[in-house]
Write a protein that binds this DNA or RNA. Sequence first.
DNA 1: TTGATACATCAAAATATTTTGATGTATGAT
DNA 2: ATCATACATCAAAATATTTTGATGTATCAA
Lengths: 90, 90
Amino acid sequence: MVSFSDPFRLEIIDLMMDGEVCVCDIMKLTKLSQSRISYHIKILKEAGLISDRQEGRWVYYSLNKEPFFLIKEWITSLTDYSSNRKRCCE
Amino acid sequence: MVSFSDPFRLEIIDLMMDGEVCVCDIMKLTKLSQSRISYHIKILKEAGLISDRQEGRWVYYSLNKEPFFLIKEWITSLTDYSSNRKRCCE
DNA sequence: TTGATACATCAAAATATTTTGATGTATGAT
DNA sequence: ATCATACATCAAAATATTTTGATGTATCAA
């Protein structure tokens, strides 16, 4: 969740929407530098949001569905339960 | 989305799950300082995630459902469309 | 009208994140 | 074997966020 904090990471996630992308794809599509992309990719990977698959010199990244599903569930629980019931201070 | 980046903000959001809370509630439940809470509240408010309602000396905060709904839709579009279709580099 | 409470705001300090540019590693082509 | 490509990693610098403590404002109670 905390790894959603950077707008470039959201952009990268969006690029992965329709399938696998390599760093070079992201470079072309975003004009970010290679090391910058690798840095953000690393954060997304450590958060478990994406998976990688190496193919020759290329590494293809794609979204993991499960963590996104869990976030949706969290949001659902947040908003469904909220019944605007008042709570007071003391 | 970017305002989800702080773990304390997520905690505050969670506290709002079952209804309105005031800053003093959050203080008791989290042991964070008042100004610290106000700071995070402000970020959440500017992001449109919460609404406030003043009642005497208290200000009650609660979740706005719409932005959460939109995030769910975004996630749905991300994960539903992703067909693992390959894209290549050149 | 004085004092206490609830909260906002501010500037400075502390801390964390991001970017950059250089270097490293593995792969594949020649 | 040599070179180019694709990407990872690193340390330093740049930048952004967060925390703190002080002060400000509004409301209510006495």
